[in-house]
Design a protein around this nucleic acid. Sequence first.
DNA 1: GTATGCTGCGTTTAGACAGCATGTC
DNA 2: CTAAACGCAGCATAC
Length: 565
Amino acid sequence: MPQAINLALKTIMQKKQAIVFVSSRASAQKCALEIAKKIKQINLILPEQILDVSPTPTKQCKNLAICLKKEIAFHHAGLLQKQKEIIENEFRAGRIKVICATPTLAAGLSLPVFRVILRSLKRFSGNWGMNYIPVLEYLQMAGRAGRPEYEKFGEAISIAKDDAQKQEIHEKYICGKPEEIYSKLAVEPVLRTYILSLISSGIIRNNKTMLEFFSKTFWAHQFKDIPKLQSKLNEMLEKLQEWDFVHVVDNLNQETKESTNLEIKKEENKVTNNLKSNIKTNITSKFSDFVNATKLTKKQNKTKLNNNNHNEDKIFKATTMGKRISGLYLDPLTANHLITCLNKYQKQNNNQDLDSQTNNFQLLQMISNTLEIRPQLKVRTNDHELVQDAILKHHNILLQKEPDQYDLEYPQFLNSIKTTLFFQDWIDEKTQDNLFEKFKIAPGEINVKISIADWLFYACEEISHILKQKETIKDIRKLRIRIKNGVKEELLGLLKLSGVGRIRARKLHKNNIKNINDLKKTNQTAIGQIIGNKLAQDIKKQLGQEIIEIKPTKRKGQMSLSKFT
DNA sequence: GTATGCTGCGTTTAGACAGCATGTC
DNA sequence: CTAAACGCAGCATAC
């Protein structure tokens, strides 16, 4: 720790710039603060810029401002997009001297720097505690060092805790070779999505073309074993049939044939299923990021249709729903989850009238338990009460079945509840700062979660459309606007105006202007006093009413042209 | 009296691509 | 490959 800081300070004294790579967000922040503490020089412009991006700065924003005063910054995915941009630009311009960062900065954008300091080459990995990062990542980070325009060379310094580690690092990273790159197709969600998309677009029409197509991929090239590959593909295809996204029809009479020959193949299935489980373990061990599809849903009955193994004459057809799912780039597993939940939602709401808050909880929990929303907000030790209360209150109206306490997926379920509670607070107009304190969600992540939720709900709208669920569509539309803007239901009317978001709508509402009609009845000057004259004029224009011309006011610091004429 | 530092214990641990159509503070 | 660093509380010490 002190070595990294000393190296950073030394770099500044040399009038050069450094990036310190660390392995957690907290470390990045702390490291930056420690360096900043030891610097005297003060810059007042940068902190102002950083704080300006949010009306309710969190502790994180404030810490960043403290660092920037000393021309130091930290950088990780929890920062707001704008803050990241400011940091990157100011660093390029040389006004920020040191950035303490997580691996965000290693990938993608180019931020050349004189010295890269790698405080630790280990990172936490769920199963095995702290572990050495891949050589590829080391190269990424070390590769930031050296600015071809200004320097003849750059430095990448790795810090070892003792001689033994020094040796290890030298062997693994300095002398070692980078790892092989593995095909992304080996990840089940990707494979599922691709097969559906290929069938939907007609590129894959039958077993033969499917095998032909995938044999040419990088995945097959690595995998080598074609029968296994075929088996994996078939497994996916079965799922797609089971979910009704793909039909396998007879080439001759085009008749759907899914459910007819279930029984006949049972015996045969026992054999293939054994084979399949072998494959699964095989792949899992080979590809560390392999995500098992079956984990998310309840165990489906294992002996199911497997009628496409030897049917060279059958052709694959995507259903209407299948095509739409593919067009939405949704993982079929997620799509199936959404469809099941939406059907239940529809049925439940026909039987009983739940209040809109409960309805929203149902819908939010539905999307909070998808692969797409991940990472979910994690239930921490102090959150258990909060989450348990919510479960108690809602367990009988959940759209999915609550998994067993001892089930492997139970923690995920708990996380989904916490994520739901976060969304609920967001549309209850809680501030960024509130959410940060209560859920420990970083400002930058709020926006990410919201845009994913919006996308998923858009997909739900499309699905409901195909399912002809008009009431559901209505609910989702409303919820989408609320999610996008983070507002209570009562502000929905005001949001129709452009230029009005959660803050301004709330201001108007507080002043007893609660809908478009109130707005029409209020005169422009009165509105102007609440949210500014310029906007008031603009709103009147949008309402199709008479407007009062306002004199353009001189902005602070703006020079009058008359001086020069 | 208050700022700073040390120790011990409990807790936590990187990141990121999808659709669609524009405009929040 | 089977940890390591952070944050907080409580207490000791320095000013």
